[in-house]
Amino acid sequence: MSELRQTIFVVDDDEAMRDSMTWLLEGEGYQVACFASAAEFLGARSDEMRGCLVLDVRMPEMSGLELHEKLDALGSRLPIIFITGHGDVPMAVAALQRGACDFIEKPFHNADLLSRIERALELDTEIAARRQRDDAISHRLEQLTQREREVMKLVVAGKLNKQIADELEISMKTVEAHRARVMEKMGVRTLAELVKAVMTVN
Protein backbone atom coordinates (compact mmCIF):
# COMPACT_ATOMS: atom_id res chain seq x y z
CA MET A 1 0.00 0.00 0.00
CA SER A 2 1.17 3.53 -0.70
CA GLU A 3 0.63 6.59 1.49
CA LEU A 4 -2.70 7.14 -0.30
CA ARG A 5 -5.19 4.58 0.95
CA GLN A 6 -6.77 2.40 -1.72
CA THR A 7 -10.48 2.99 -2.23
CA ILE A 8 -13.09 0.94 -4.07
CA PHE A 9 -14.98 3.38 -6.30
CA VAL A 10 -18.42 2.01 -7.14
CA VAL A 11 -20.25 3.62 -10.08
CA ASP A 12 -23.80 2.31 -10.52
CA ASP A 13 -27.13 4.07 -11.13
CA ASP A 14 -28.98 1.44 -9.02
CA GLU A 15 -29.16 2.73 -5.44
CA ALA A 16 -29.91 -0.73 -3.99
CA MET A 17 -26.80 -2.09 -5.73
CA ARG A 18 -24.65 0.76 -4.37
CA ASP A 19 -25.98 0.15 -0.85
CA SER A 20 -25.36 -3.60 -0.94
CA MET A 21 -21.85 -3.08 -2.38
CA THR A 22 -21.04 -0.57 0.35
CA TRP A 23 -22.31 -2.93 3.04
CA LEU A 24 -20.30 -5.86 1.60
CA LEU A 25 -17.05 -3.97 1.01
CA GLU A 26 -17.02 -1.93 4.20
CA GLY A 27 -17.76 -5.17 6.07
CA GLU A 28 -14.50 -6.52 4.58
CA GLY A 29 -12.62 -3.44 5.81
CA TYR A 30 -12.36 -1.63 2.47
CA GLN A 31 -12.77 2.11 2.01
CA VAL A 32 -15.68 2.68 -0.39
CA ALA A 33 -16.89 5.69 -2.38
CA CYS A 34 -20.14 5.41 -4.39
CA PHE A 35 -21.32 7.42 -7.39
CA ALA A 36 -24.77 7.34 -9.00
CA SER A 37 -23.51 8.20 -12.49
CA ALA A 38 -20.43 8.25 -14.69
CA ALA A 39 -20.59 12.06 -14.80
CA GLU A 40 -20.63 12.23 -10.98
CA PHE A 41 -17.50 10.06 -10.82
CA LEU A 42 -15.74 12.14 -13.51
CA GLY A 43 -16.49 15.27 -11.48
CA ALA A 44 -14.75 13.81 -8.44
CA ARG A 45 -11.90 12.00 -10.24
CA SER A 46 -8.23 12.90 -9.79
CA ASP A 47 -4.92 11.42 -10.97
CA GLU A 48 -4.05 10.70 -7.33
CA MET A 49 -6.87 8.20 -6.87
CA ARG A 50 -5.67 4.77 -5.74
CA GLY A 51 -7.66 1.54 -5.62
CA CYS A 52 -10.04 0.24 -8.27
CA LEU A 53 -13.26 1.08 -10.03
CA VAL A 54 -16.31 -1.24 -9.93
CA LEU A 55 -18.38 -0.05 -12.86
CA ASP A 56 -21.82 -1.00 -14.15
CA VAL A 57 -21.81 -1.44 -17.93
CA ARG A 58 -25.38 -0.19 -18.49
CA MET A 59 -26.16 3.26 -17.10
CA PRO A 60 -28.29 6.11 -18.51
CA GLU A 61 -26.65 9.15 -20.12
CA MET A 62 -23.08 7.80 -20.05
CA SER A 63 -22.54 4.02 -20.02
CA GLY A 64 -19.74 2.30 -18.14
CA LEU A 65 -17.99 1.63 -21.46
CA GLU A 66 -18.15 5.32 -22.41
CA LEU A 67 -16.73 6.24 -18.99
CA HIS A 68 -13.92 3.72 -19.55
CA GLU A 69 -13.08 5.40 -22.88
CA LYS A 70 -13.06 8.86 -21.25
CA LEU A 71 -10.82 7.65 -18.41
CA ASP A 72 -8.51 6.05 -20.96
CA ALA A 73 -8.25 9.37 -22.81
CA LEU A 74 -7.43 11.09 -19.49
CA GLY A 75 -4.57 8.63 -18.93
CA SER A 76 -6.22 7.01 -15.89
CA ARG A 77 -4.55 3.82 -14.72
CA LEU A 78 -7.18 2.86 -12.16
CA PRO A 79 -8.02 -0.85 -12.66
CA ILE A 80 -11.65 -1.31 -13.74
CA ILE A 81 -13.97 -4.24 -12.97
CA PHE A 82 -17.14 -4.15 -15.08
CA ILE A 83 -20.43 -5.49 -13.72
CA THR A 84 -22.43 -6.89 -16.61
CA GLY A 85 -25.78 -8.43 -17.35
CA HIS A 86 -25.76 -11.63 -19.43
CA GLY A 87 -26.27 -9.81 -22.74
CA ASP A 88 -23.37 -7.44 -22.09
CA VAL A 89 -20.61 -10.06 -22.03
CA PRO A 90 -19.37 -9.34 -25.62
CA MET A 91 -19.09 -5.64 -24.70
CA ALA A 92 -17.21 -6.49 -21.51
CA VAL A 93 -14.81 -8.71 -23.46
CA ALA A 94 -14.19 -5.81 -25.87
CA ALA A 95 -13.50 -3.58 -22.84
CA LEU A 96 -10.95 -6.11 -21.56
CA GLN A 97 -9.20 -5.92 -24.92
CA ARG A 98 -9.06 -2.13 -24.48
CA GLY A 99 -7.40 -2.44 -21.09
CA ALA A 100 -10.12 -3.06 -18.49
CA CYS A 101 -8.97 -5.29 -15.64
CA ASP A 102 -11.87 -7.75 -15.27
CA PHE A 103 -15.62 -8.23 -15.50
CA ILE A 104 -18.18 -10.13 -13.48
CA GLU A 105 -21.68 -11.20 -14.52
CA LYS A 106 -24.83 -10.53 -12.50
CA PRO A 107 -25.96 -12.27 -10.40
CA PHE A 108 -22.58 -12.90 -8.82
CA HIS A 109 -21.34 -14.46 -5.60
CA ASN A 110 -19.84 -12.00 -3.16
CA ALA A 111 -16.71 -14.15 -2.86
CA ASP A 112 -16.15 -13.89 -6.64
CA LEU A 113 -16.41 -10.11 -6.56
CA LEU A 114 -14.09 -9.87 -3.54
CA SER A 115 -11.40 -12.02 -5.19
CA ARG A 116 -11.56 -9.86 -8.34
CA ILE A 117 -11.29 -6.71 -6.23
CA GLU A 118 -8.28 -8.15 -4.41
CA ARG A 119 -6.57 -8.82 -7.75
CA ALA A 120 -7.41 -5.32 -9.01
CA LEU A 121 -5.94 -3.76 -5.86
CA GLU A 122 -2.74 -5.79 -6.30
CA LEU A 123 -2.56 -4.52 -9.89
CA ASP A 124 -3.09 -0.94 -8.65
CA THR A 125 -0.18 -1.40 -6.21
CA GLU A 126 2.06 -2.63 -9.05
CA ILE A 127 1.01 0.29 -11.29
CA ALA A 128 1.75 2.81 -8.50
CA ALA A 129 5.19 1.27 -7.87
CA ARG A 130 5.96 1.37 -11.62
CA ARG A 131 4.85 5.00 -11.84
CA GLN A 132 7.06 5.90 -8.85
CA ARG A 133 10.03 4.17 -10.46
CA ASP A 134 9.39 5.84 -13.85
CA ASP A 135 9.11 9.25 -12.18
CA ALA A 136 12.43 8.67 -10.39
CA ILE A 137 14.14 7.71 -13.70
CA SER A 138 12.63 10.75 -15.47
CA HIS A 139 13.89 12.99 -12.67
CA ARG A 140 17.41 11.53 -13.03
CA LEU A 141 17.34 12.04 -16.80
CA GLU A 142 16.50 15.70 -16.24
CA GLN A 143 19.75 16.08 -14.23
CA LEU A 144 21.88 15.16 -17.27
CA THR A 145 23.57 17.88 -19.31
CA GLN A 146 23.01 18.03 -23.08
CA ARG A 147 26.42 16.45 -23.72
CA GLU A 148 25.79 13.68 -21.15
CA ARG A 149 22.51 12.90 -22.92
CA GLU A 150 24.30 12.67 -26.27
CA VAL A 151 26.92 10.30 -24.81
CA MET A 152 24.24 8.23 -23.05
CA LYS A 153 22.22 7.87 -26.27
CA LEU A 154 25.26 6.49 -28.10
CA VAL A 155 26.26 4.24 -25.17
CA VAL A 156 22.73 2.79 -25.07
CA ALA A 157 22.87 2.30 -28.85
CA GLY A 158 25.87 0.00 -28.23
CA LYS A 159 28.61 2.32 -29.51
CA LEU A 160 32.14 1.88 -28.17
CA ASN A 161 33.94 4.79 -26.46
CA LYS A 162 36.16 5.30 -29.52
CA GLN A 163 33.15 5.45 -31.86
CA ILE A 164 31.41 7.92 -29.53
CA ALA A 165 34.57 10.08 -29.40
CA ASP A 166 34.76 10.13 -33.20
CA GLU A 167 31.07 10.86 -33.66
CA LEU A 168 30.97 13.70 -31.12
CA GLU A 169 34.48 14.91 -32.02
CA ILE A 170 35.71 14.76 -28.42
CA SER A 171 38.55 12.85 -26.78
CA MET A 172 38.20 9.29 -25.43
CA LYS A 173 39.03 10.66 -21.96
CA THR A 174 36.10 13.11 -22.19
CA VAL A 175 33.79 10.29 -23.29
CA GLU A 176 34.88 8.20 -20.30
CA ALA A 177 34.30 11.13 -17.93
CA HIS A 178 30.82 11.80 -19.35
CA ARG A 179 29.99 8.10 -19.29
CA ALA A 180 30.99 7.82 -15.62
CA ARG A 181 28.85 10.85 -14.73
CA VAL A 182 25.89 9.44 -16.65
CA MET A 183 26.12 6.15 -14.71
CA GLU A 184 26.39 8.02 -11.41
CA LYS A 185 23.49 10.42 -12.09
CA MET A 186 21.27 7.60 -13.36
CA GLY A 187 22.05 5.51 -10.27
CA VAL A 188 23.14 2.45 -12.27
CA ARG A 189 26.24 0.27 -12.12
CA THR A 190 26.15 -1.62 -15.40
CA LEU A 191 25.38 -0.90 -19.04
CA ALA A 192 22.46 -3.36 -18.88
CA GLU A 193 20.90 -1.38 -16.00
CA LEU A 194 21.34 1.87 -17.95
CA VAL A 195 19.70 0.43 -21.08
CA LYS A 196 16.81 -0.91 -18.99
CA ALA A 197 16.29 2.45 -17.26
CA VAL A 198 16.25 4.37 -20.55
CA MET A 199 13.88 1.85 -22.17
CA THR A 200 11.51 2.14 -19.21
CA VAL A 201 10.72 5.79 -19.86
CA ASN A 202 10.97 5.79 -23.68
Rank of each mutant, 00 (worst) to 15 (best):
R50W: 00
D47S: 12
P60Q: 09
I104Y: 04
L78E: 02
P79S: 11
L55I: 04
A94V: 07
D102Q: 12
V93E: 15
E118C: 06
D72G: 15
F108Y: 15
S76Y: 09
E66Y: 11
P79Y: 05
E105Y: 00
M59K: 01
A95R: 01
A73S: 15
H68D: 09
E66P: 04
L71Y: 05
P90T: 08
R98A: 09
A44Q: 14
V89F: 04
R98H: 14
M91Q: 13
L113N: 09
F82I: 02
S46P: 03
V32Y: 07
A100C: 11
L113D: 10
L113R: 09
L55P: 01
M62E: 02
I80H: 05
A44T: 08
A95K: 02
R98W: 03
V54K: 02
D72I: 03
I81A: 05
A33F: 01
C34I: 00
G87V: 10
Q97Y: 09
E66M: 14
V32H: 09
M62L: 13
D72H: 13
P79V: 08
R50L: 07
P60W: 08
A33M: 07
P107H: 12
I81E: 03
D56A: 05
F108H: 06
T84E: 07
H86L: 11
L114V: 11
R119A: 15
E66D: 15
I81S: 04
A38V: 02
F35N: 01
A120Q: 04
R116V: 01
G75C: 11
K70A: 14
D102M: 05
L114I: 10
M59V: 11
F35D: 01
G64H: 03
C34L: 01
V89N: 03
I83K: 03
S76V: 14
P60R: 12
I81P: 01
P107G: 14
V54S: 02
E105V: 12
C34D: 06
A94H: 09
M59Y: 04
S46N: 13
T84A: 15
R58N: 10
D102L: 05
R45T: 05
V89A: 04
D56M: 03
I81W: 08
C101L: 03
F103V: 04
R58F: 00
F35K: 01
L55D: 01
F41N: 02
A73F: 06
G64N: 05
I83F: 03
C34A: 14
